[in-house]
Design a protein around this nucleic acid. Structure first.
Lengths: 166, 166
DNA sequence: TTCGCTGCAAAGGATTTGCATTCTA
DNA sequence: TAGAATGCAAATCCTTTGCAGCGAA
C-alpha cells in the first residue's frame, strides 16, 4: 500500500508562512501591509481550498475595509512566493491551496455528491506517469490529476454534505 | 508496455458523427439546421483541440452569417450528444475535442515548449486510479489527468513549434 | 403552422486595471 | 519622501441570455 491520505494541518506552522512571505516581499522590494498580513491570516485559518470571495469575507472580519482587488492581487503575490498554489479543478472560479513543496506533492479526489476534497499522494502512480511520458518521448515536468468519485460510506457522505450547508 | 498513443483520425468517420448527431437531434425533438451541420463540419475538419472562436472562424468560411452564440449553443448540444467532450486543461477558455467512447478514454500530455498535445491511454494507470480511490473510500466515476513535460527530441519540438505559427 | 433556432446586442460573472489617495520603509 | 499598495469603479474577457424574426418539420 503506497497511497497516503494527506490532511492539511496549518495551525502549527502559521508563523513559518508569515516569515516566508515577509522574506519574499523584502527580497523583491515589496511591502508588508496590514492588508497582506490580514489576507494571509484569513487563508491560513480557513479550510485548504478557498476562492477569492471566501478570502475576502474572512479577511473583512479582521479589517472591514479590505477590497476584492487587493485580495486578488495578494493571492497572486502569495502564489508567486510559492506559499499558495492554484488548483486546476474549477473552471468557474480560481481555487487556491497552501502549497506543499515538491516532496509533499499531492493529487485530489473529489466526491461528486458531497463535494469533499481528499488530498493524497501515491508514489506508484507518480512513477508510472514519469514512465508513460518517457515512452511517448517527453520528459515529465509536472502533472495535474483529479479523481472524481462517490463516497462509499453513504452516511459519512450525507454528513459531509450537511456540514457544507452551514 | 500498456501505454498507447492515440492519434485522432476523423476523416473516415465523419459520416458516423453526422448520423449520430442527427439521431440525437431527432430523439430529442431538436432540429437539424444548416448552422449546426456547418459547425459540426468545421469541428471535424479541424485539429482535435479547438475553442469557440476557432470554430466560428472555420464555420464562417462555409457560411458567413453564423454567429458566436450559435457556436456556443451548438458546442453544448454536441457535448450533450456525446460527440464532443470539454477538456479540462484550459482555465481561460473552453476547449473541446471529439469524444471517444468509454473504451477509448484517454488522457493528455502537453509539451510546455511547443504546445503539442498527445493523447494516450494506459490501462495500468487506470487500474491504479480505481484502486487508490477505493483505498480512500470512494468509488471512482471519472478522472482528469494532464501530464506536462518537454519533448526529448529537441528538433521535433522546434518543428512543431514552427508549425503552430503559420 | 408550429416552435425550435438564429443573430444580434445586452447581460453576466470572474478577474484585472486605471487612478487618485494612503501608507510602508 | 519616494513609490508601492490600496479601494473604488470602470474595463476586460469569455460565455450566456432575451428577443424578434426565421425556418425546419
Amino acid at each position: 500500500l503506497t497511497t497516503k491520505e494527506i490532511t492539511s494541518n496549518h495551525l502549527n506552522i502559521d508563523t513559518d508562512f508569515h516569515t516566508k512571505f515577509e522574506e519574499f516581499l523584502k527580497k523583491n522590494g515589496l511591502r508588508l501591509t496590514k492588508q497582506r498580513a490580514v489576507i494571509l491570516d484569513a487563508i491560513l485559518t480557513s479550510p485548504n481550498h478557498i476562492d477569492a470571495d471566501t478570502v475576502l469575507e474572512k479577511a473583512r472580519t479582521a479589517d472591514k475595509t479590505v477590497g476584492l482587488a487587493t485580495v486578488y492581487r495578494t493571492l497572486q503575490v502569495l502564489t508567486e512566493s510559492g506559499i499558495l498554489n492554484e488548483c486546476a479543478f474549477n473552471k468557474e472560479r480560481a481555487i487556491f491551496e497552501i502549497s506543499q513543496d515538491a516532496k509533499h506533492h499531492h493529487d485530489h479526489l473529489i466526491c461528486e455528491k458531497c463535494g469533499t476534497i481528499v488530498e493524497f499522494h501515491d508514489e506508484e502512480i507518480e512513477l508510472l506517469q514519469k514512465r508513460i511520458a518517457l515512452r511517448l518521448g517527453f520528459e515529465l515536468t509536472n502533472h495535474n490529476m483529479v479523481l472524481y468519485g462517490k463516497c462509499i460510506d453513504k452516511n459519512k457522505c450525507k454528513l459531509r454534505f450537511a456540514e457544507k450547508k452551514n
